[in-house]
Nucleic acid binder design. Structure first.
Lengths: 214, 214
DNA sequence: CGGCCCATTGACAGGCATCAAGTCCGGTGG
DNA sequence: CCACCGGACTTGATGCCTGTCAATGGGCCG
């Protein structure tokens, strides 16, 4: 991966690139570096002994992942899209933590950017009906999806495969496909292309996500 | 609750008691205090807009919950059994964090005692088959359950109701009941009383939990 | 153009939710 | 000491949601 362009930010940080489905770090490896996403989308993966694959989180630009709250990474991080990131050594990250703790009297806000998505995923997967889970996932990520462009108001890029969504929601790709079809037929979302998403009826989307509507 | 006995530990900390099903703190309240459990079992509760109740974690003696990684508590904490705990103010907890960070070059280990159970719950609930989930839950807590007594080797106190277990595993009490019956009939566990548990075949329990066996 | 992976659709079976009784157990009060 | 009561647990019958299997379609890349 080092044969690709490695840019230098104006803070002297090294901006690293990664291709889609490239691994940033493996579950179980010692957590030497914090990965700060600058651009693109990443996913957290956990494999069970029987080969069951779970996507435990999606991460977006600005998130810091691989925090050394544990001596080893608790999940494998892979690029969903091509992305860029910046590395922070464990010790440098610790110093930033102490500074923010002392100066602002609070923890580094970034400490929750990793565990918060996982916490919310637990709540989402804990719902029974698949449509509720799908809508809850969409609500939780739609505001962080990149916009398709200035000329396409309300249209988001949606680069997640249905396989990833299924592994996130603890179901199958077929069921995801049927759920999305239902949302399209009810004019709650639209998909002008496979990797495009428009939320047409956000109120109803959130109502289904909260369980108020079926 | 202050009319109950409040003991003083030899460190000058105040040991607080709580009765079963008493609330320690509410989701959304500002996280002023960290609760360190000294004895007993607690549960984390999250309610959805439609009234759906989820148990997002069980906590045991030694765990610290309500950490100020977020300005507000992210779940409601209730006592499962009668329990005791010690309060740490947010600032005092921060100081301990900075000290451990500087002296030992690592974060306070307790920072993971709260998020780790939630992370593991996500993995458990993400499994499809109910029996797998039940066994995974048992494996994850059996070593932290209090022993029934020196004269009962291998017997644990098991004070969790099937309702709590069902809300933890995203299923119903009836299904939990049938799952436990199956585990009893297969001699994987035994329950001499409703609130007692013996793991008779731990290897098989773990095999089912991992998905290797059905 | 061919191959591959992903998405789609249908048929079918099965696991689990739901509903409804009935039982057990601990606690309370007479 | 015993009757009562409420909550939790148990068990069975039933139906639906969703997993599974199989086949097809479609887009992307070499």
């Amino acid at each position: 991966m080092f044969n690709q362009a490695i840019a230098q930010t104006h803070f002297g940080e090294i901006l690293m690139p990664a291709d889609a489905s490239e691994v940033l770090f493996f579950e179980g490896d010692p957590s030497e570096y914090v990965f700060e996403l600058r651009h693109g989308i990443a996913r957290g993966i956990n494999l069970s002994a029987d080969g069951d694959r779970q996507v435990t989180a999606f991460f977006f630009a600005g998130d810091q992942i691989g925090l050394p709250v544990f001596p080893a990474y608790r999940f494998t991080a892979e690029a969903v899209t091509s992305l860029t990131y910046v590395l922070h050594s464990r010790t440098r990250w610790h110093e930033a933590l102490i500074r923010s703790c002392r100066d602002q009297g609070c923890l580094l806000p970034s400490i929750s950017t990793e565990q918060d998505p996982m916490f919310r995923r637990g709540i989402i997967v804990g719902r029974r009906r698949i449509l509720t889970r799908i809508c809850a996932l969409l609500v939780s990520i739609v505001d962080r999806l990149p916009k398709a462009g200035p000329e396409y108001a309300g249209v988001c890029r949606f680069p997640l495969t249905q396989i990833d969504i299924a592994d996130y929601l603890a179901t199958t790709p077929e069921t995801i496909c049927r759920g999305f079809r239902q949302l399209r037929e009810r004019r709650i979302i639209a998909q002008p292309a496979r990797d495009m998403l428009i939320v047409q009826n956000r109120a109803l989307l959130e109502a289904i996500a909260s369980g108020a509507a079926q």
